[in-house]
Design a protein around this nucleic acid. Structure first.
Lengths: 216, 216
DNA sequence: TTGCCCATGTAATTTGTTACATGATTTA
DNA sequence: TAAATCATGTAACAAATTACATGGGCAA
């Protein structure tokens, strides 16, 4: 059974299937960026994304931006136009089509995924059961990372609040400021938790052979 | 120029280069999971990761777990052992080697990357400048997502606090509880910001043709 | 006794990153 | 005048996800 399903379903060519497949969130991030300006090159999209959404969503590699733009073009969500530049090499600029604007609007209204987190500092802490000595340093690093981010976000918020078209980005920047202010408090609380752990079991920098009750 | 660099660098075979390349963080996540139990199958690793670190770090696909375990084995960071099961098919179980334990310890002590966030709800808000109507729903969905997560984390924290070997995971769970409690307050603040925006500019559900000052 | 889920994987595809290429412009 | 940088990209590769395969146990 199920031997030659490819033949049986041959009216659905790979190309057709690809065209029907829903776009990944990354595509919508690019559509979102394009919605702020009239026309952008791949380079512009990358720069804009880097300066606006990288801190809470995505920092694209150039190659991915170009590939995504081609796909959006093939689906009719953006228009491509070649521009000849007099000293520099030619470039392609992109603009949202009405269909692209509608796709973005529909994605905003119909999705419901939560945020995705990849929290290396907490992973170190989580797995740190045999190396208490290093964990203080992990927390110190993370705290200063948060402080840098907070400073950057305050500047970004102030910039965004100056421009009417950026009123929604400004709301997100304000969210970010509160987010990292809270996080700084949370780091302090983790420090207290850790200290309490270490008081309960006196400092053991190296893992002792007897400590972890090996079964074998 | 630069025509046949491959020949010139021929003492560095692809295999050697791959072996020297630093492991991705994902590998350390698996080492971390393995550090909690004596021996685990690929299936076990996936289940354990799903139940412990998925919410703040990584939810692996089965295929990726198996591939990673093979790589860790090839580098000598885990030992592989085949186990014959009497009704079920054979399986392979893995155990940290001393070298693997050391690699994990060194990663914990020497890294400094910050967390990575991929926050779809905020992206919707950020790009939502032409669809104010949907944004309230986005916030409602996100708030209830946070509430579900918070409830789950409280349960997880209580479970972890019962077991001595999970004292560091328990610290991370407590961090998570505070994290999402703060986030719920932050959502409320975003709601206030949005309401203020809409009061300044009376409700405009459809984007008006004149609204966005198109340049062209 | 058929259909679904558990436990074990492999194969194919897509996504994302790193390395490389090119030519002008600005800086040391 | 060499090195760095900006503004375009392309090619190769690694990571991650989705789809498929297999066989036993268990529930309808």
């Amino acid at each position: 059974m199920a031997a030659n399903w490819k033949v049986m379903a041959s009216d659905r060519t790979p190309a057709k299937v690809a065209a029907e497949r829903p776009l990944p969130p990354t595509s919508y991030a690019i559509l979102g960026v394009l919605s702020f300006l009239d026309e952008m090159s791949g380079y512009d999209v990358r720069k804009y994304a880097d300066a606006s959404i990288a801190w809470f969503y995505w920092s694209p590699a150039p190659s991915q931006v170009y590939a995504e733009l081609r796909r959006l073009r093939d689906r009719g969500l953006v228009d491509e136009r070649k521009v000849a530049q007099d000293a520099l090499r030619n470039k392609r600029v992109y603009r949202l089509t009405e269909s692209g604007r509608e796709a973005l609007r529909s994605w905003i209204g119909n999705g419901h995924e939560g945020p995705i987190l990849k929290h290396s500092p907490m992973l170190r802490l989580w797995a740190g059961h045999n190396d208490p000595a290093a964990l203080g340093q992990v927390l110190d690093d993370y705290e200063s990372w948060c402080r840098d981010m907070l400073e950057h976000l305050k500047w970004m918020r102030d910039e965004a609040e100056k421009v009417d078209a950026w009123r929604y980005p400004a709301v997100v920047a304000r969210w970010g400021v509160r987010h990292y202010e809270a996080e700084l408090g949370n780091v302090e609380a983790v420090r207290v938790d850790l200290k309490e752990l270490e008081e309960r079991r006196p400092s053991r920098t190296a893992p002792s052979r007897r400590g972890n009750s090996p079964k074998g």
